[in-house]
Every structure is written in structure tokens, then in C-alpha cells.
Amino acid sequence: MKVRIGIGIIVFFSVIAIIGPWLNDLMGIGPWKIDYDAIAEPPGAGHLLGTTSQGTDVLAQMIAGTRNSMVVGSVAGVIGVILSVVVGVTAGFFGGKVDAVLSFVTNMFLVLPVLPLTLIVAGYVQDTGPITIALIIGLFGWAAGARTLRAQTLSLRGRDFVMAMRMIGESKPRMIFVEVLPHLAGWISAMFLHLVLAAILAEAGLAFLGVSSADTISWGTVIDQARQVALLNGMWWWFVPPGLCIALLGTATGLVNFGIDEVMNPRLRTADIKAMRKALA
């Protein structure tokens, strides 16, 4: 149940991200359209979530922002996961010198202060769009995952079934892809979700600090703009939706991760209290 809610929320945002522009056209609203008759208007019939102090529609901005936030999240997630799988699994499976070198690199990335570094890089790169931010976050955020995967691979490598497959002469690539990797699927998906959330939060944080492109809209930029005006004027409808979206997505990834944990570790499965009460009554 928990997992289903989580997946539901994630699917919902993904769909919005994909059909966003079309949805806005359909409703006849747009993130840049200014309605001079409705400036800083609270939610109502004309503008379902109200308007900003410039007279743009908050709902339209949210829909457009979902796409960019999700792009940042998934691009960072994919890059981060690929890096952590390549580095972590290679280090864990081959061990020895390969492991020593890769572990050193991993540890180095682990102690890098990511946020200041991101700020510096973002400052150098002209016009920091969502893809740039996703790249930065993905390239700097894989180390923790790589370390977990290394440890897991190391333990899998010593397991009897891997030894047995080695004894019948299985090749190393097949050993990694057919015997070892499938066992890490839970870890990898949990890691991906974690990276997605971290990237969305980081993007919002960066936007909040002013590091963002002027012509893209994301949940982060909406909050940033709202921060400058809305708080002072009590325009809650401006900053609550983006905040809520981030919180919801965070909850969703958490719920899915709980589910993955339960599947991977049956000990966490709790007894069915309701069934017990009924049976013992």
C-alpha cells in the first residue's frame, strides 16, 4: 500500500512533466502569460491556484516547473547511478589494485564539499540551465552510492553461488551482469530515487540562492521568486504549491524506498496486527 502511494505520486509528477506544455495549452494558460486584470490574485475560478505579483498563473508555472524539476532529477539520477554502479561494482568485484584506486577516487569525491563546489562551477558556466545543474549534481553525487555498491558486491563476490559459477568456468562479464548485478537491483533503484530527490532539492536550493537561468521555470525558481515578494504580502498560494510538490515527491521516494527495503529484507515485514487481533478475539 505504502509503495503504491509512493509510486502513484511519482507517476503523477512524471506524467505532468511529459504532458505539461500540452496541458497548459489545453487550459489556455501559460507560465509567461501575464493577466493584467489579475495581479496577485488568490486562487479562484479564473486562476485555479491564483496569480503571482506579475500576474502570471501559478498553476501554469507549477506545470512548467514540474518538467524542469523532473528533468533535473532524472538526469542527475541516471548519471549518478551509472557512475556509482560502474565504479562501485568494478571495485567490489575485482578487488586488489583496481579496488584501491577506485576506492581512493570514491573517497575523494565523498569528502568534496558539493554545494560550494556546485556554486563555483555554476558561477563559471554561462546561463545555468536545468541540464547543467543535473550534470553537476550527478557528477558529484555518486560517491556514497558507489561505496554502498562496492560493499554489497564485495559480499556477493564471496558468496558460495558466485564461487560455484566461477568453478564451472563462467566468464567475468557474465558473472557481473548475470549473477551479481540482479542482486543489487534493489540498492540501485533506491539509490536512483535518492539521487532524484537530492537533485531536485539541490536545484531548488541553488535557485533559492540565485543560481539559475532566468528563462527556465522550476519548482525552485517559483519558490525563489515567491520568497522575494509573496512572504511579505501573505501570498501563500504562490509559495505553498512548489513547497508542497517537493515535499510530496520526497515522501513518495521515501515510501518506495521503505517498500524496497521490505522486499530486500524480509525481517522488516511486520506481523499483520489486524489479522492477529481478529483471529485471537
Binding site: R159, D160, F161, M163, A164, M165, I168, G169, E170, V178, E179, P182, H183
Partner: peptide
Amino acid sequence: FQDPFASLNSLRKVEHNVRRALKLH
């Protein structure tokens, strides 16, 4: 091995084990 729970890959069917061994040799 001693532990038949650990010496088979829990995600692979019985035939996978035998077939790979045959093929590889």
C-alpha cells in the same frame, strides 16, 4: 558446498545452473 541455500543464485532457475556448466565446457 555445505549450504545449498547459498550455493545457488536465488534469482536464476534450476536449468540456468546446469545449462551454463554444460555450455562452458
